[in-house]
Amino acid sequence: TTVHVNGVTYHFPNPEEAKKFVDRVVKEAGLTVEVKGNQWDVE
């Protein structure tokens, strides 16, 4: 699973890890998340 955060790419072994990361980032920074298949874009 690939997560893009403001142009930076993070790779995770599974969607659960990616979701935990995204949830944390979104809570801390108040960002928006767009999910496209296995790819997350966070802005």
Rank of each mutant, 00 (worst) to 15 (best):
E17M: 06
W40F: 10
K27N: 07
L31T: 10
E28S: 07
V35S: 04
E17I: 03
Y10L: 03
H11T: 08
Q39R: 12
T1F: 14
V35T: 07
V25G: 02
G7A: 02
N6C: 15
V8M: 09
V5K: 01
V33Q: 04
V25D: 02
V26H: 07
W40E: 08
D23L: 08
V25W: 13
K27D: 05
Q39K: 09
V33F: 11
E34G: 09
R24V: 05
V22P: 00
E34R: 09
A29E: 10
V42K: 09
K36E: 15
V3D: 00
E43G: 10
V22W: 13
G37H: 10
N14R: 01
T2L: 09
Y10Q: 01
K20C: 11
W40Y: 10
K19I: 05
V3P: 00
E16N: 04
G30F: 06
T32E: 10
H11S: 06
K27H: 08
N14D: 08
K36W: 15
V25L: 15
N14E: 03
G7L: 01
V25F: 13
E28T: 07
G7M: 02
K20F: 04
V33C: 14
K20M: 07
F21S: 00
E16T: 06
N38L: 05
L31D: 07
A18W: 02
V3S: 00
N6G: 08
A29V: 09
Q39V: 13
E17T: 04
E28I: 10
G37K: 05
E28L: 11
V8D: 03
T1M: 08
E43C: 14
R24F: 11
V3E: 00
F12C: 05
V33M: 05
V35A: 04
T1W: 15
A29M: 14
T1I: 15
E17L: 06
N38D: 14
F12K: 00
V35C: 15
H11L: 05
V26N: 09
G30V: 05
Y10E: 00
D23K: 04
E43Q: 12
W40G: 08
E28W: 12
V35W: 10
V42I: 10
K20I: 10
N6V: 02
V8E: 05
F21K: 00
N38E: 14
V22F: 13
E17F: 02
V42Y: 08
K36Y: 10
V8Q: 07
V5P: 00
F12S: 00
R24Q: 10
V25N: 03
K27Y: 09
K36L: 15
E34V: 14
F12P: 00
K20R: 11
V8A: 05
D23G: 03
V3G: 00
E34D: 11
E17A: 09
V5D: 01
K19F: 06
Y10C: 03
E17D: 08
D41S: 09
F21E: 00
G37W: 14
A18R: 01
L31G: 13
Q39A: 12
L31Q: 07
T32W: 04
T32L: 11
D41L: 15
H4Y: 14
V35D: 11
V3Y: 02
T32H: 11
T1S: 05
K19G: 03
E28Q: 08
V42T: 10
T1D: 02
E34P: 12
V35E: 08
T9F: 08
E16P: 01
V22N: 02
E28N: 07
P13L: 12
T1K: 03
Q39H: 14
D41E: 13
K36S: 15
V8R: 12
K19R: 13
L31C: 15
K19W: 11
R24W: 14
Q39E: 13
P15D: 12
